[in-house]
Structures are given as structure tokens and as C-alpha cells.
Design a protein around this nucleic acid. Sequence first.
DNA 1: CTGTTAGCGCTTTCAG
DNA 2: CTGAAAGCGCTAACAG
Lengths: 335, 335
Amino acid sequence: MTVTIYDVARESGVSMATVSRVVNNNPNVKPQTRKKVFDAIEKLGYRPNAVARGLASKKTTTVGVVIPDISNTIFSEVARGVEDIANMYRYNIILCNSDKKKEKEIQVINTLLEKQVDGLLFMGGTVSEDHIQAFKTASVPIVLCGTKEESEKIPSVDIDHEKAAYDAVQSLINAGHRDIALIGGNFEDLAKGFARYQGYKKAMEDAGLTLNEDLIRVGNFRYESGLESMKQFLQTERKPSAVFAVTDEMAIGAIHAIQDEGLKVPEDISVISVDNIRMASMVRPLLTTVAQPMYDIGAVSMRLLTKLMVNEEIEQSQIILPHELIQRESVASLS
Amino acid sequence: MTVTIYDVARESGVSMATVSRVVNNNPNVKPQTRKKVFDAIEKLGYRPNAVARGLASKKTTTVGVVIPDISNTIFSEVARGVEDIANMYRYNIILCNSDKKKEKEIQVINTLLEKQVDGLLFMGGTVSEDHIQAFKTASVPIVLCGTKEESEKIPSVDIDHEKAAYDAVQSLINAGHRDIALIGGNFEDLAKGFARYQGYKKAMEDAGLTLNEDLIRVGNFRYESGLESMKQFLQTERKPSAVFAVTDEMAIGAIHAIQDEGLKVPEDISVISVDNIRMASMVRPLLTTVAQPMYDIGAVSMRLLTKLMVNEEIEQSQIILPHELIQRESVASLS
DNA sequence: CTGTTAGCGCTTTCAG
DNA sequence: CTGAAAGCGCTAACAG
């Protein structure tokens, strides 16, 4: 029923090897025989079996990607970059959601490896010792995407989260703000939550400003938590004149909390954040934020992985992509 | 270097067949031997090769999913439903973006089939004759997710887009609106763009209202086009009292166009749409919309596919999921 | 330029 | 409950 390379060989009167050659575009085939083979392929409706090929060649041309949550816009934009480049180099991707649960992450890494992926792209929260251990059992290259780990042994691509946060806060300070609140994210998340907090702290300290515990809240990176956090700031007697939210979603939540209170952004309170998700330019006022190049992070990670998979020489295995402050409408100068 | 089932067999003093049995949880193995085998597996760090297994068993436990654009929130929410259920039934998914380009769609369908996926989930715009042709060459089940085709031969799951649009517009009419503008989407997109337009038209006609060409614009489903379309309506002398946008994104664009003009939603103009993306409850005013269960559409599609893949009896192969009007803040009564 | 021949690592009858 | 053996469909030397 299923037509194999053998059937094509018989039909066209050549050997399997020759059929294999024409299917794989090997130049060492006389144009004439090539034609015969193509005709047979067409006639029989032959479709090469990639699984058999994978077993024989030990290459599957598919890469595994573990992602926290594909329905989260921030990751889905990265994923698009990943897939586009994968595609460009003829790879397919097996996508696995992990919800940043360590157990789940380790589990999917293993099943991906069982499936003999040619490489692995890992996007997650923190990379623990257990992760490293799991990676070690792999015989294929791995790149971290949007994270990194201490030792910097594993190739990775990300932005400098601390610096991005620093730049955001500094721009607030430059605009004359002194009472700057922070809506942070999970500090356990070293690569992102903690790093962005560090950037805030450093910018404040460098400006000779002291951190005020009352002006620090930690949310979960999401809209609702930004809204909640801001509501609480609004109840304190000495309201901040500006707030730095560690993600756009929380910033937008904050903006709405402010507006719901009858106050205006940026006239009464300025808001800034980091990310630049699509929605940042789909709100009023337009959100001022430090852009992180989501698509590029995915694309560059995948490009790096393709190089690693063919043992290509690479100049740089710890890649930091640039971020950029996008001035829009949510920050006012206090002069 | 790589440890195979044969190595485990030797190490534990049993046959490959027995090792295969314990790995596959076949009950016909004496607990004692089972233990021996597990010990050997652990000792050698054996990891089953899913590609070899796939070749031998003709099952890969992976399904292909072709999706228009994973970075589009509407599809990424569906994708999450798909992956969750796939996972639950031990399948992995190979994800391919198609951008709704027919050529690309056909191409990825073919490579997915070459990779011997056990089933195919297709989300796209319109399903043409060429698609059907490509599907026919497949020997595995296929389900359409968020689309359908004329003949209804191919299993599918979706909502009733026409009825959803109808309900939205009808609610506007019930609220006393008469001048209801439409911001539509590509009419070539039969399953969605055109169907939703039909719903609008029918609701108007059923209420004895005549369609006004000046009050109809077609966008591309996205925010910017909603904003643009609304701007144009605002310049006409007889402004609509309400607008029905075929997607939430366009509705939000419309809201901003209205607000940018110094008018208020819903006091001056009401806005309603269909979708209920996460952002619908992350704007001011909160968007009133007809919710389509994105996650469920993905989950139910995948569940249907899992049944098809094991030849399970199915009662219903054309599944229509319910939609629901979510009253929030963007529609005012004209009484 | 083309054919022969081993496998790739696992599942699956078929015996026993 | 366990083993032997025959493939699954293809690639990759190696010859010629």
C-alpha cells in the first residue's frame, strides 16, 4: 500500500541507491536517469519517509523547543522568530509548553531527546543544576533563549535585562522624577524578575535616591497584578510621581488603575516599563517602554543553533541583543 | 557510544524482546526480570530511540499542526489548547506557520506527512480544492480547526461565526441602535470574514434595517485597520451610533479612534465585536464582545483527532462550539 | 555515474 | 513469561 523507495527503483529500473540520490539532489546522477526516476516518483505518488531517513542518517531535521507558554504574547513572538529561521534552514520544530515548571521542563527535554531532535532551544525561567544535568545527557547542541545560566557554559541569547531596567528608570530620573515606584516580578526568576529589579535599584542608587519599601511591590508579570499593585500605591499618602513596571502588561494594568482613580497618565503619574509588546502601541496613552527585540531573540537563537548543529565555527556563544528606549506618551517631564 | 536496546538486553541477560516489553509497559514480564532490566537501563543510561520505534511500529506519537501565525494571540490561544490535549494523550506537536498562504500550507502539509505524523490539525483561512487534494494523499486523519469546508467531509471544529456576528449586532439593535456601522474583514475568508459579514447583514435585515454602504468598511482583522476604518466613519456627516467590528482588535482600534477624536465610548458611540481575546478585558472601557472559546476550539479539535487516530467511534465530526455574549462596558442603551 | 550490501534501533509475530 | 528472527524504509560506504 505505501510506496517505498524500492518500488520507485523497480518502476524506473534503477537501484535504490540511485533513487535515494535523486531524492536527495545528489549531483552524481545522469540527467536521463534522473528523469526516469522522477517520472516513477510521480507515477507512483512516492513520498519519502522521513522517519526511515532519520534512522539511517541519524538526522531528523527537527529541533525541539521548550517554551513556558505559547499563549503568552511575549513567548509567541519569540516562537515566530524561531520558527521562521528554523524553516529557512529546513528544520521543523516540536513545540512543548512547560509553564516554567521545572519538573515539566526536565520531562519534555527528555522526550524531545528521545525523539532524536537535532538540537534543543530552551526558553524558561531559571536554569537549575537539574537542568544542566539533563542537558548533559544530550548529544545534541542546546541554546538558551531569553535566559542564561551562571556558568555561561551553555550558548544563549538574551538582552541585558538589568541594563534595560536601568535605562528605563534612569530616563525617569532624567525627567525629574524622584519618587519612583517599582512593580517588580518574581525575584526567584533570576534572569528576568531579579535582574530587572537590580536595574531599578542600581539606577536609583546611582542617582543618590534611596529605595523606599513602600514604593516596591512584586507582581507576577501579568496585567492584573500591575493593576492591583498600582491600586495599593494609590492608597498611600505619598503617591509616587512615576512608576516603573517590570513588564508592559503590568504597566498597562498600572495605567488603568491610575485612570480608574480619575487621575491621568502621564500628567499625574508617569509609567514606563520593559518589553514593547504589540499591545504597548494599542493603548491610550501609548506606552513608553524599553523595547526588547522578541522576534530577533528567537531568530538569533535559532540561527545560532543551526550553526551549532552543523559544527560551524561560532565567534560568540553568549549573545546579548540590544534594547532600546521607545519614547511614547506615558512619561511626563517634571520640570 | 549510544546505548541501544541491545546493550540493555546483554547487560541484563535477557532478550531485546523482553527489554522492549518492559520499556513499553507490557504486563507479560515477571517482576523479577523487569527489575533486572530497569537496573540495566539505569546503569547504562539507556534512552529509547523514538525514531527507530516509529519506523518499526509505524506510529510516531506526533501530530502536525499548521497554523496561520503563532504570534497572533488568537491562534496562540488555540495552539495552547491543542498542545495541552496532545500532551495529555502523549502526543507531541510539530508546529508550522503558514501565514494563510495556500502555497505554504500545501507545502507544510507535505513535509508533515513525510515526517509521518499520526494526524494533522489544520487551521487556516479557506480550504480550497487544492487543500482537499493534498489531504487526500494523507493516510492519517485530519481535522480542521477554526475553519471548515463546503462539503463537510473533513472533520472540523469551529464556532458558528455567522450566528456570533448576528448575536452581536442584534444586541446592538435591541439596545436601540439603528445606524450600525460594520468594520469587516476580508470577504474572501469564507469561514470567518465573510460569515461574520453575513451575520451582520442578516441581523440588520431581520430588524428591517437597510444596509448603508457608507457604514461598511473592510479591514484586515487587525488593530490598525480598525482605527483607520473608524476614523473614516467619524468624518462622515451622519456618524453611526454604534459599530460592530468583526474582531476585538479592530474594535479596540475603533475605540481609540473615537477617543482620539474626543468622543466617548459608549456614551457617544457604542462598540461591539467578536472574539474575546485577553486584551478585551485589558482596555478602557472594557470591551463588550461575543466570546469564542479559543482554548476549547484547540482542545476539542485535538481531542477529536486523538479519537480519529485510534479509530475510535465518533458521534459527531462537524463540531460547532457555543459562543456567548459578554456584556462589559463598551455598549450603551439608546433608550 | 550506478549498484550491492550492511545496517540504523526498535517492534512484532511466532514459537515454545 | 521469554526468545529468535524478520523486517520497518532509507542512507552510506564500497565497488565497479
